[in-house]
Design a protein around this nucleic acid. Structure first.
Lengths: 161, 161
DNA sequence: CGTAAAATCACCCCAAAGTATGAGGCCTGG
DNA sequence: CCAGGCCTCATACTTTGGGGTGATTTTACG
């Protein structure tokens, strides 16, 4: 029970532990180097670097990338010039009809890339359970039973590449 | 507004608070064990805060795009000029190089159709274990970890449609 | 402002997928 | 003939996937 809980929050715990370890290390370094001449500068520099990294990490972790690309259909009739490889065109109609939400679409795309649910969770910064929920909903909306079938269907419908 | 802001950045605040708690703990430990100059600690804390902020600012600065709307003109071709789908050409060279056997290829094709291992076993009239063995070998030979990746890779190599 | 949809997460349980290992039968080329 | 690849299957185990339920929080919209 406890073990399960631990393994489930492995990442969180790891984060915490590594931060703690880092601070202890810094403390130790301080004690070690306190006698040296430029210990203070080194220590300050280390803090600066580490906390800059922490800040970057925090920002990236907490600001959900809000890149939203909206593709609008605009028919253009052509006579003869056919591009060799027709570019992917998101079929918004099919997407809307299926009732698949934005987040679900993201999950679907990652599924199509061959990610495991855990990998998807890591890349979207959500929990494994959330990914499962999304994919479950996806299967219902796409009327399929397995992720592979979901990929096939979504490709047929031009919902994903 | 303030409340909203608080609830929005709950994670951040929690993180900050726990960091603060950690520092206080360390401070307390220090007071317990050693008596050192206070200026240093304050200075270090200041550096930490400032550079965390710097990191956040940097990250936010460097990840620029927010909402972008891309309008793509979708080419619609006249009836006669529907781009022909190039006929599937099995890449025998890649197939031989990969070392995939005949039976494994059959399994691979059924995997790509979205069949479960049990369904594959039924269709090939072999046991479930056999299918598992084949697919395991496939993953090694294709250098992938999951069946979805195997499908992708096999399609890339023109081993399957 | 209130509501509905979307997103998030948890817990339980079971099924499917995948790993590791061993083993026996069947061809085939040297 | 016999070594080696292939196909078959088994057993045991771990990991991942998926169903179901319920809950809270965000977000979007009238």
């Amino acid at each position: 029970m406890l073990l399960k809980s631990i393994s489930r929050h492995k990442q969180t715990i790891l984060y915490g532990l590594s931060m703690a370890a880092l601070l202890v290390l810094l403390r130790w370094l301080q004690l070690r180097l306190i006698i040296l001449e430029h210990a203070f500068e080194l220590y300050a520099a280390a803090i600066a670097i580490i906390f800059t990294a922490l800040g970057i990490w925090l920002a990236l972790r907490l600001t959900k990338p809000k890149v939203r690309t909206v593709i609008v259909e605009k028919p253009v009739y052509l006579e003869k010039e056919i591009p060799a490889t027709p570019p992917f065109q998101l079929n918004e109609k099919a997407l809307n009809q299926s009732g698949i939400s934005k987040r679900e679409l993201e999950v679907l795309q990652l599924i199509a890339e061959g990610c495991s649910n855990q990998e998807i969770a890591d890349r979207l910064f959500v929990s494994l359970n959330t990914v499962k929920t999304h994919s479950s909903n996806l299967f219902v909306k796409l009327d399929v039973k397995r992720r592979i079938q979901a990929i096939e269907k979504a490709k047929q419908l031009n919902i994903i590449q």
